[in-house]
Amino acid sequence: MTCLHTISKSPTSKLLSSCVSVLKPGDGILFIEDGVYYCSPAESGRHPGADIRLFALQEDVAARGLSVPSAADVELVDYAGFVGLCCEYEKIVSWF
């Protein structure tokens, strides 16, 4: 069953490495809250391979004064997009 993982703490939490170690091909990751700091260019080396789609919640990105270049490997979604992803993937695992 495909799975959407949400990550809501900053990189200090090392949540992404725990999450990545239990992913299946076809899973997706959505960064929310302080998890959006994983979108920073300094963190891109930790991002998983291309078979895992990455998303970030636009409202949380904007709140923190971050920007995600359109060429980046992370797609921005709003709350409607967040709900859409939860329908598209078959279950949700929250990392907090």
Binding site: T6, S8, C86, C87, K91, I92, S94, F96
Partner: peptide
């Protein structure tokens, strides 16, 4: 959990 299509946690 038995009756929902999706369960999502916020913590």
């Amino acid at each position: 959990t038995m009756h929902s299509d999706r369960v999502i946690n916020f913590g």
